[in-house]
Nucleic acid binder design. Structure first.
Lengths: 342, 342
DNA sequence: TTGTAGGCGTTATCAG
DNA sequence: CTGATAACGCCTACAA
């Protein structure tokens, strides 16, 4: 008996497949005793609905897609995406959905092709978008091909797709205030690529908070690599007027780059240069000195995004879910006052 | 026109759906001109086969599953799995398959449930297994439920499932010889959990190579955490007779733990203690001192495993694919002779 | 309360 | 060489 079907069950019980289906789906139209007999036999034969048949019928694949469009190196070095994946999968599994992962690589067009193909083949019921760009071509495409999606973003658009809202402005405040408290008198912000909406927002927020606190700010847009972080730091450090200088790295790699840059110049950390990272990671914990980092909640982000998407697929529309602001783990890289670190 | 089907195409062309299907699948039974008309219209209407319908008919989901059963923390800190995923996805995409990821967490039973559910729902056509255990319950279950699988392992079984064979013995030789060349006179092997077949094999291989070279060996089985690596090192270092001591960490975290342990004891690295890591990672590159690491090819591993599985699904049986031995990146943590590092 | 009869979109069988 | 037609397994009007 390779695969049990409802026809088998109906046959054994001498009833119709419709009765079996009603019984299984808890619908009226079948007597309590029949229902129980069906359920018992299902249990005994260990029947599970065939997802392909069910999908064909219901027009639902019961799968959600996520395309990772950075290159393998970058994804592997950022625990962020791995945690997000864990959160998504956790939420999906709880509701019977599966997670489909694609890695189209850097090319924008390749990622769009993935969505097109998913939509036309009906392979996924919806997708989750990260790292939104200004005038992101993905949202338009997804609407065009009719693939529902949610965004994880720090841009609170009034209308548009449902979104998990990251409070990057509050996080910017946390980071800059900490640096100010530690006595740093200028701020360097090593931000990521400027096409990313959250990087623009972060840059604006860092600048706003810093100048509100009387600190001068120099910004430098970098690619997310340690090398570029070091380069950005070396460039920026010549342009800041007052030391000690606090550096905000928009990713752990950028913060590590700043650390390296400070080392090259022989500038002591945290005395003259303080460094904080927007992301937590193992490298942050083991670097020398260890890096003060934001505790974002990537697993929660993934979970919220997946739940939001599934709610939307179920017709329960929620347009926005707010992720609480991140905490801060203070480590030696910015602990200029040498307070005890608990 | 929400979704184009072959019925639409047949209707427009005034032919049967069978003719369309033949034309599309390149089968005989349709004239060249009809075929061309079909192909043209398919192009024009931008038709793609509906994967759910095709799956129902063909009994193939065109998806491959991978269950990550370590906990989120561990997966996120190991770039290894991320690279493997990239390799798998790359190979699958090239052949029209999708990758389904599940994260059942640590519990063995949960992972088995995932496979059971995948098999009964026909959600995936096969799965890829990593981190095999002695008497691994997964292989038996998968055979029982009829889900094809391939293993990525260093155990070269004569029969059994198709496998990608990792040459852990050769890699052990590379690591230990390097340490011997650098003048280390005893070896500590911080190995991973002993249920893992590859860890057993590594332990045997390290011991064999070391004693062949006249080096004494002390082994300590650890969980894959930095803390446990440090603990294992501290325990073992008291039991080795001769310094300088070379430490082989079976993962980057264990090697980092050894580094920390050496730091706690004030033992200079690489002078008295040399450390090498079985895995490459960003933490290895930025640790202090940077860690000598094996360059395994996780992307290639994933690619080979996926291709092997797909070949098996296509009936093209290959039982074994060998992954070439890894190279070694020498860094300061074991560079006792202070040769220039290029 | 139950059974019959489609249909979801594709592909394979089997007549013409 | 072509074209109905019947599955694949499930669900749901509708009829009995």
């Amino acid at each position: 008996m390779p695969h049990v079907t409802i026809a088998d069950i109906a046959g054994r019980l001498g009833i119709s497949t419709a009765a079996v289906s009603y019984a299984l789906n808890g619908r009226p139209g079948v007597s309590a005793t029949t229902r129980q007999r069906v359920l018992d036999l299902v249990e005994e034969l260990d029947w599970t609905p065939d997802s392909t048949a069910r999908s064909l019928r219901s027009r639902r694949s019961m799968a959600v897609g996520m395309a990772l469009s950075r290159d393998a190196e970058e994804i592997a070095n950022e625990p962020f995406y791995s945690y997000v994946q864990a959160g998504i999968e956790q939420a999906l599994a709880a509701r019977g959905y599966s997670l489909m992962i694609s890695r189209p690589g850097r090319r924008q067009a390749a990622e769009l092709d993935v969505y097109r193909s998913w939509a036309r083949q009906r392979r996924v019921d919806g997708v989750i978008l990260f790292d939104l760009l200004a005038d992101d071509p993905r949202t338009g495409l997804l609407e065009e091909v009719g693939l529902p999606f949610v965004e994880v973003t720090s841009e609170a658009a009034v209308d548009g797709a449902p979104r998990v809202l990251i409070d990057d402005a509050a996080d910017a405040g946390t980071l800059v205030s900490h640096l100010a408290d530690q006595g740093y008198r200028s701020i360097i912000h090593l931000s990521g690529p400027g096409q990313l909406t959250h990087e623009r927002l972060r840059a604006r927020a860092v600048a706003a908070v810093a100048s509100a606190g009387g600190l001068e700010v120099v910004s430098s847009a970098c690619r997310y690599t340690m090398e570029d972080g070091a380069r950005g730091f070396l460039e920026a450090v010549g342009r800041v007027p007052r030391q000690p200088v606090g550096v905000v790295g928009s990713s752990d790699l950028l913060a590590l780059g700043a650390l390296r840059g400070a080392g090259l110049l022989g500038l002591p950390v945290p005395d003259r240069i303080g460094v904080v990272s927007w992301d937590e990671s193992l490298p942050c914990r083991i670097s020398n000195p260890p890096l003060t980092s934001l505790e974002r909640r990537p697993i929660t982000m993934g979970r919220l995004a997946a739940d939001l998407l599934l709610d939307r697929l179920d017709g329960r529309a929620r347009s926005l879910v707010r992720l609480p602001a991140s905490g801060l783990t203070v480590r030696a890289s910015s602990n200029r006052m040498a307070r005890e670190i608990s």
